[in-house]
């Protein structure tokens, strides 16, 4: 199956993508609307607002943070909690996505799959996250702990930088391997109906065998994501989007990016299902 076909297979489930998108949007809106409220209550009648629409709002934002930072900092705490909450919600959502891909794709399949496999997805997610944390600590820990020493001992930062890049590449390979293992576990659980413990063992083994062959497609997906981010950051800076209508258009573009990213996630799952 070519890349286009893989992408098409993911985007052939727009309803599924849209449900996931809506769940994420609702959560994000709770932060976004509070940001709007805090900004409005703090500087809502200020002529400085003009500056916010343009790219160079450093002074406006800094004065806002200096004076009203206490109103904004609780929002950061909320984002932290939201991430934790969403990790649990994601176990449900991804259970639904996998069920829709593996078993059947119907109007209610995301809810059926989510509720049926929630606990098993959660366990797999937690275990794989722990493995990921251990991997990250193993790879980055020694490097980071040596940086201060290298700063004093080395004549050039070049080896530190390239060493860091090499470690980042190694870490990324490991992350991809863990991601693929996590996906394979979920496929085994839903497709074969086996126990989580057994599925994880099989998933990790399968990942060892098949991840290398999956790398080109996964890399292509990564590049598409990177391209989306770059395009968004370029568009975000356009003065065209410094009018009220422009801001609305920019919002639509941002949401399209988010929707496409979810579609790419579904496409990735479709692809990995096909590899097993």
């Amino acid at each position: 199956m070519g890349l286009i076909e893989i992408i098409k297979s993911g985007f052939s489930k727009p309803r599924l993508i849209s449900i996931v998108y809506m769940i994420q949007l609702i959560l994000a809106l709770t932060i976004g609307l509070q940001v709007y409220q805090v900004f409005g209550a703090s500087i809502g009648n200020s002529l400085s607002l003009e500056g916010l629409k343009e790219g160079n709002a450093h002074m406006v934002i800094n004065d806002l943070l200096n004076t009203h930072g206490a109103s904004l900092s609780p929002l950061l705490g909320q984002v932290r909690w939201m991430v934790i909450v969403y990790l649990i919600v994601a176990a449900f959502v991804h259970g639904g996505i996998w069920y829709s891909i593996i078993k059947q794709y119907e109007k209610t399949s995301i809810w059926v799959g989510g509720s049926t496999y929630f606990l098993r997805m959660l366990i797999i997610g937690i275990v794989m996250s722990l493995i990921f944390i251990i991997w990250s600590a193993l790879v980055w820990g020694p490097y980071l702990s040596k940086i201060q020493y290298w700063m004093e001992a080395l004549a050039s930062e070049e080896p530190i930088l390239w060493g860091g890049i090499a470690i980042a590449v190694l870490w990324s390979f490991g992350a991809v391997f863990i991601f693929v293992a996590s996906c394979f576990c979920k496929i085994f659980v839903i497709r074969d109906g086996i126990k989580v413990r057994v599925a994880m063992w099989k998933g990790i083994k399968a990942s060892f065998k098949k991840t290398w062959k999956c790398l080109p497609v996964l890399f292509a997906f990564f590049m598409i994501l990177a391209l989306l981010y770059i395009m968004h950051s370029l568009v975000d800076d356009w003065t065209l989007f410094s009018t009220t209508i422009g801001v609305f258009v920019l919002f639509l573009i941002q949401q399209l990016v988010v929707w496409i990213k979810i579609g790419l996630r579904v496409s990735t799952y479709e692809y990995l299902k096909g590899r097993l």
Partner: peptide
């Protein structure tokens, strides 16, 4: 003119969506 505030509010929505998407890649 609240356009500027909306710009930052929509930006925060966008980044929160991205953060929760990325954080949940293993779930």
């Amino acid at each position: 003119d609240n356009g500027g505030i909306w710009k930052y509010a929509t930006r925060s929505i966008y980044w929160v969506q991205n953060i929760i998407q990325s954080a949940s890649f293993l779930m």
